[in-house]
């Protein structure tokens, strides 16, 4: 009886009693959800265009952020470092296409998945070798990202919004809109969708697969860079961020591997769900449930909808 009360009633009583805390928690969940969605977006881009489940997306995020910060530490001005990092991401996309994807064309999906595992390890190795394994602070002020917090008086208390979080939400939404527009309206976007639909048909109308792969990996690299800057501004840049990147996997699966809106909705569900769960139900279990709650939510959703919330229906033929 007592346990039931604690699970089903007490958290809601707490929410009602302190609406400012609830709003604060929701806001935190919203922001981390948007940022998860941003990582997941990189996955979706690559999966849609090449059918590769790119496990290295999270590491690409850390790698991009680390390159940016590392270059700045070596004395390169902030914006030059940003351009150089973009160049590095382009080189990475070229390298991956040439050295990993092209030789592995026509292999089963699982092999490509494993290859991105290998890529993950290579990137971790290079990143730590070149820039060192110590956590670094993100160069927020040099990139003119806002700092500090806005306190809003509401619901009989204070709700504190970090300015960087607001910026993150705005930038992430802009990215999503741009990518959506690019996918729907531009020539390259149409080519990408064609490749996603059918490799052979796309080839036969004259779309170069190799070129498309470089473009998507580069686009995913840019998304990774933005995600890396925004995550790095919230905590330090180091390979510990990898754990955050792994969270993007449940987000992705929840939304469905092939859906851009799915990635966003999935991100919001996971972000808000885990913050609420941690804050209101976490103490019951001793805290720290944030580390696995997302995965369990996804497990539950997948049992009902095996293709995720917005994924294309999986049709199997013999």
């Amino acid at each position: 009886m007592d346990l039931h009360y604690k699970i089903f009633i007490d958290p809601f009583v707490q929410m009602g009693a302190a609406p400012d805390l609830l709003v604060q928690t929701l806001w935190e969940g919203f922001v981390s959800g948007v940022l998860y969605a941003l990582i997941a977006l990189g996955f979706v881009l690559i999966y849609k265009a090449s059918g590769v489940f790119n496990f290295a997306q999270g590491i690409m995020m850390v790698f991009a952020a680390l390159t940016l910060v590392g270059l700045h530490e070596k004395g390169v001005p902030a914006f030059l470092a940003l351009f150089l990092t973009i160049g590095v991401m382009y080189a990475l996309a070229r390298g991956v296409e040439r050295l990993v994807l092209r030789p592995l064309v026509n292999q089963p999906d699982i092999m490509l998945f494993m290859a991105t595992f290998g890529l993950t390890y290579v990137l971790i190795g290079i990143g730590e070798l070149v820039f060192g394994g110590n956590p670094k602070a993100m160069i927020t002020s040099e990139l003119y990202l806002p700092k500090g917090a806005i306190d809003i008086q509401a619901f009989g208390g204070f709700v504190s919004l970090q300015k960087i979080d607001i910026a993150a939400a705005v930038i992430a939404s802009l990215m999503v809109v741009c990518l959506g527009f690019g996918f729907q309206k531009t020539r390259i976007g149409r080519a990408l969708r064609a490749v996603a639909d059918d490799h052979q048909a796309a080839l036969s109308v004259g779309i170069s697969l190799n070129q498309i792969w470089v473009i998507v990996w580069f686009a995913a690299g840019l998304v990774a860079l933005v995600a890396g800057i925004l995550w790095g501004a919230r905590s330090d840049v180091s390979f510990a961020l990898q754990i955050v990147a792994l969270k993007a996997l449940p987000v992705l699966i929840l939304g469905g591997l092939t859906s851009v809106p799915g990635a966003i909705v999935g991100g919001l569900i996971v972000g808000i769900g885990e913050k609420l769960g941690e804050f209101y139900w976490g103490p019951l279990l001793g805290g720290g449930i944030e580390s696995w709650l997302a995965y369990v939510i996804v497990l539950a959703v997948l049992l009902v909808r095996p293709q995720g919330l917005f994924g294309d229906r999986i049709i199997e033929r013999i």
């Binding site: 999906d109 699982i110 449940p250 720290g288 449930i289 580390s291 497990l299 049992l303 095996p306 999986i314």
Partner: peptide
């Protein structure tokens, strides 16, 4: 148990639930 409905990459991510949940149990 979920493997009956979930396949491929979806299952790989679902098994991550086991990894993180069990590791949390060992700590908590």
């Amino acid at each position: 148990l979920p493997s009956l409905r979930i396949k491929g990459f979806y299952l790989a991510v679902a098994t991550l639930a086991a990894q993180f949940f069990l590791q949390w149990c060992f700590v908590r």
